[in-house]
């Protein structure tokens, strides 16, 4: 369905459109430096190998930032992140692709909880929960008013 990202469905079980993140060497290094993390395993392949890793790998702060971005991309700038809790699994190595997906797990008034998962070709890179505040929801059971003036029917957008 088009326009889903502009009109997030806020029901438990609703799925967010996935976000595909190409895990480039540039992203890994840029994310590490932007988060002021100069651990060599995040930018120096030779030293990473000496420590038993096949290559450099993404740091947890970058994963955290990407998870936050995934949620605010979807809910827009008015949404406020309250809590981001993540656990790492397999590493994000250069050349891989991570697909972030999210499912609404709880809706309590204007507070929404999303279960987030990031998969790459090795398996699950990250699992987590994001809690955010969105624009106040209508009372339970009330008809849902359109967020923007309703487009003419059959607009096909």
């Amino acid at each position: 369905m088009t326009g889903a990202s502009q009109d997030p469905v806020l029901e438990v079980g609703a799925e967010l459109p996935p976000l595909t993140v190409p895990v480039t060497r540039t992203l890994i290094v840029a994310g590490a430096i932007a988060s002021r993390d100069y651990q060599d395993v995040h930018h120096d392949p030779e030293l990473a190998r000496a420590k038993g890793s096949p290559d450099v790998f993404m740091n947890i702060l970058t994963t955290n930032g990407l998870v936050g971005r995934y949620i605010t991309d979807h809910f827009g700038p008015a949404a406020v992140l309250r809590r981001v809790a993540i656990r790492l699994g397999v590493p994000n190595y250069p050349g891989d692709t991570m697909v972030l997906s999210g499912t609404v797990t709880e809706v309590d008034g204007d507070t929404v909880r999303i279960g987030v998962r990031g998969e790459n070709r090795l398996g699950t890179h990250v699992t987590g929960t994001v809690t955010l505040t969105v624009a106040p929801a209508p009372p339970a059971g009330a008809p849902v008013p359109p967020a923007t003036p309703a487009p003419p029917s059959g607009s096909g957008s």
Binding site: V21, L27, A30, G31, I33, A34, S35, T62, G65, L66, G68, R69, T72, D73, P77
Partner: peptide, 11 residues
């Protein structure tokens, strides 16, 4: 720099 690295364009 953070937003550029993350590809985050949130206004």
């Amino acid at each position: 720099h953070w937003c550029e690295a993350m590809g985050d364009t949130c206004p």
